[in-house]
């Protein structure tokens, strides 16, 4: 039994890395999603093309390949990253590309009437977005952002391939040392599930807070 508790500690250490990757990756994904999502509907052509190219590229290639490029190929271009930094970068850029489409869709779904009212009130394009469009688009983005965060959590498992000691990596270690597959993989199954539940609950709570004043609008 004492031996199992040592292994459990190992897995929990891995869980910490997984949580860290998820939080940092999501933060990066969120920033990138807004930049690229708003870039796609910007009035300036080159910005639109850049955003579109980024989105199509990162949605169109696998996270696995992207991770290998960031960690093993970028060093040849002189940019060596720690495994954690490489993991966060690959996960953030990958999920950010999906998030960008969510941002774009939500912003475009705010009724045209609203934009016209902001023009009639002579707000600047930045003020229109900041005070009228985004506050109404944000509640529409949240449920999908929650899905994306859960996708990102599950995708963190690929970082074990670049020797980052996340939860899946540690489970492999335990499996190799004990010869038991059931115990370590049942443990991380439950842990992944609990983390996903926590994300869902967090997003729902935030959504309730955001829409508190919007009763009966949609």
């Amino acid at each position: 039994m004492a031996e199992w508790s040592g292994y459990l500690t190992l897995i929990l250490q891995g869980a910490l890395v997984t949580v860290q990757l998820t939080l940092m990756g999501s933060a990066l994904a969120l920033v990138v999603a807004f930049l690229a999502g708003l870039g796609r509907i910007a009035p300036w052509g080159p910005l639109r093309w850049l955003a579109t190219a980024y989105i199509e590229f990162f949605r169109g290639t696998s996270i696995f390949v992207q991770l290998f490029w960031v960690y093993f190929v970028l060093p040849f271009a002189g940019a060596s990253l720690s495994p954690l930094a490489a993991g966060v970068l690959a996960l953030g850029l990958n999920v950010g590309a999906y998030g960008a489409e969510v941002v774009r869709g939500a912003v475009l779904s705010v009724p045209r009437d609203q934009r016209e009212a902001t023009v009639a009130l002579n707000l600047t394009p930045y003020q229109r977005m900041r005070h009228v469009i985004l506050p109404q688009a944000l509640p529409l983005m949240l449920p999908t952002f929650g899905n994306n965060a859960i996708e990102l959590l599950k995708a963190t498992a690929v970082v074990s391939l670049i020797s980052l000691t996340d939860m899946t990596f540690q489970a492999q270690v335990v499996r190799a040392q004990t010869g038991s597959t059931l115990v370590p993989f049942l443990t991380i199954l439950v842990l992944y599930f609990l983390m996903a539940l926590a994300i869902s609950a967090g997003v729902r709570a935030f959504e309730r807070r955001l829409t508190a004043g919007l009763d009966g609008v949609r």
């Binding site: 009437d113 609203q114 016209e116 009212a117 009130l121 005070h131 109404q136 004043g213 609008v217």
Partner: peptide
């Protein structure tokens, strides 16, 4: 406008004061 186009996420007072404060 025909359909009022009030900002649904802002109170009546904030709907009216938004533009004078910002512009």
């Amino acid at each position: 406008f025909q359909h009022f186009n009030l900002f649904p996420h802002k109170s009546v007072l904030d709907n009216i004061t938004l533009a004078p404060i910002l512009t």
